[in-house]
């Protein structure tokens, strides 16, 4: 049996973060989470997610800066990143991001976007 695909959820809003984590786990994904960009970069030292869901506007290191910092690291493989925001439009984001979710998004949008980029496990892909 193949290992579950891993998703890293980065959002400073704890309620949404926890909820997305729980829902993705129920869908069969392995999930880790961070509350802002710096914590995400630290986590990438020990975790290798298959996909990152990241909020744009966060205290500390925001999503755009964290994305650029991640891309500049040679030790990381290319990881698709889905940016999420209620205020920032996708045209103001780096064009190399994998996808954009406008908040508030519903569950179907979230799961469809994740499934489009990765499947819960290799066996499902």
């Amino acid at each position: 049996m193949s290992a579950a695909k891993k998703v890293l959820v980065v959002d400073d809003e704890p309620l949404l973060r926890e909820l997305v984590v729980e829902v993705l786990r129920e869908e069969g994904y392995a999930v880790v989470a961070a509350s802002e960009g710096r914590a995400m970069l630290d986590l990438l030292a020990v975790e290798r997610p298959d996909l990152i869901l990241m909020d744009v506007m966060m205290p500390g290191l925001d999503g755009r800066a964290a994305y650029l910092a991640m891309r500049s690291r040679d030790d990381l493989p290319p990881i698709p990143v889905v940016m999420m925001s209620a205020a920032v439009t996708p045209d103001r984001l780096d064009p190399s991001i994998a996808a954009f979710l406008r908040k508030p998004f519903d569950l179907d949008q979230l799961l469809d976007t994740v499934a489009m980029l990765i499947a819960p496990s290799d066996s499902a892909s």
Binding site: L15, L16, L19, P104, F105, D106, L107, D108, L110
Partner: peptide, 12 residues
């Protein structure tokens, strides 16, 4: 209440 509210929004 907050979790229920956030969940309702996510679930539509």
């Amino acid at each position: 209440a907050q979790r229920l509210q956030a969940q309702a929004a996510l679930l539509g």
